[in-house]
């Protein structure tokens, strides 16, 4: 469960990584001279990594006797979220183009 360490090492590490990821995303989005699609793929991936950091290093999703249930629950929620977002955009944009 919680490490018995005296200092909140995993929190500090998680925080530093989150800061780095945030600034890298800003740099990639606004300063790098690459195409829109590539920028979106990079900053989208950075966002997912940062969300994972929060989930594992701050929220300790795996801890406790229900840790496995939590992970399955989160994975399922993320799956539904992706279906809703990607599915809606797909159906509503290609629907306009195809009729």
């Amino acid at each position: 469960m919680e490490h018995k360490s005296k200092y909140p090492v995993s929190h500090v590490v998680g925080f530093l990584f989150s800061l780095i990821l945030t600034f890298v995303a800003v740099f990639v989005a606004l300063k790098m001279n690459v195409s829109y699609t590539i920028v979106m793929w990079i900053i989208g991936s950075l966002a997912i990594i940062q969300a994972g950091l929060q989930l594992f290093m701050f929220m300790h999703v795996t801890e406790g006797e229900d840790g496995k249930t939590n992970v399955i629950n989160m994975a399922y929620a993320v799956f539904v979220a992706i279906v809703i977002v990607a599915g809606s955009i797909w159906v509503l944009t290609s629907g306009h183009a195809a009729h």
Partner: peptide
């Protein structure tokens, strides 16, 4: 945690609307 799973889906619908 299960409530947070439902919250993820709530925000997903709003992101979907924004995406469209």
């Amino acid at each position: 945690w299960i409530f947070l799973g439902a919250e993820i889906v709530l925000f997903a619908t709003l992101f979907a609307v924004y995406g469209v």
